[in-house]
């Protein structure tokens, strides 16, 4: 426990938060990376997944995207992109290797968003869809008034998983000398400074848990039919940890 106490006092030392490569700058980088990549991934993946789900096509794609995302290590993708075509140049406020990190984060945010949105759309009770069609709803109206509200909980689950996944991946960017809070951890290991390692790990872990908590509250609040619903399906837990 002494190690944790030392880590906490390292965090409470204001000088560790200031300056270039201080905690504040790394935190800003990581938050910017997380928000930007999540927005990009959502804008790319959600329309496609919802459209495919509405049509009932491309189920194999939706499942395979998830399987591939699980098997390919985030670390390997970060390394391949930064040593390869995208390089490690600074990208404005996103820091060193900003572009390679952003692209990796977007890639790893896609699978949970696509799979959950697709499955959410497909799991809408077919009888409800039939009934809505029988009432004379056209495709667009059916999508907006019936399918989307009923699929919303799983769509939100996908976004929450993507958020946590992106935060974890952004932490790993430091292993390729990229931006973000992982740098505090890697610098601690490099300098044999265990207080810094533990301090950095505490910040990363606490924010991750806070994001998860915040997202699950948002998920529950935004569910339009949560009292009516009881999902009893058997589904494999999605991996997030990166």
């Amino acid at each position: 426990m002494d190690a944790f106490r030392a880590g906490v006092s390292w965090l409470l030392d204001g000088s560790n938060w200031s300056g270039t490569d201080g905690l504040t700058q790394q935190l800003v980088e990581q938050v910017l990376l997380t928000v930007t990549s999540l927005v990009i991934a959502t804008l790319v993946a959600l329309p496609v997944a919802l459209w495919l789900g509405h049509l009932g096509r491309g189920g194999a794609l939706a499942i395979n995207v998830s399987n591939i995302g699980r098997a390919v290590p985030t670390f390997a993708v970060l390394v391949l992109l930064s040593v390869g075509p995208l390089g490690t140049d600074r990208l404005g406020p996103y820091g060193r290797a900003g572009l390679a990190t952003l692209v990796s984060l977007v890639l790893f945010a896609l699978p949970p968003i696509i799979t959950n949105a697709y499955v959410g759309m497909r799991e809408v009770d077919r009888e409800i869809v039939e009934a809505a069609r029988g009432m004379g709803m056209n495709g667009a109206r059916l999508f907006r008034r019936v399918e989307l509200p009923l699929a919303l909980p799983l769509i939100m689950t996908g976004l929450r998983l993507a958020l946590v996944q992106v935060w974890a991946t952004a932490t790993i960017a430091a292993l390729v000398a990229g931006p973000g809070l992982g740098n505090t951890i890697t610098a601690g290991f490099a300098n044999d400074d265990s207080d810094r390692v533990i301090g950095g790990a505490i910040v990363v872990a606490l924010i991750a848990v806070a994001l998860e908590g915040f997202a699950s509250v948002a998920e529950r609040t935004l569910d339009p039919v949560r009292r009516v619903r009881r999902v009893a399906s058997v589904r494999v837990a999605e991996p997030l940890a990166a």
């Binding site: 190690a3 944790f4 946590v164 935060w167 974890a168 932490t171 790993i172 430091a174 292993l175 992982g182 951890i185 601690g188 290991f189 265990s194 390692v197 533990i198 950095g200 790990a201 505490i202 990363v204 872990a205 991750a208 848990v209 994001l211 998860e212 997030l240 940890a241 990166a242």
Partner: peptide, 18 residues
């Protein structure tokens, strides 16, 4: 387990090192 799962692996390994 949800909390454990949320902790990024880099932080997880670091916190286990002590």
């Amino acid at each position: 387990t949800t909390i454990i799962y949320t902790v990024p692996s880099l932080a997880m390994f670091s916190l286990l090192v002590p």
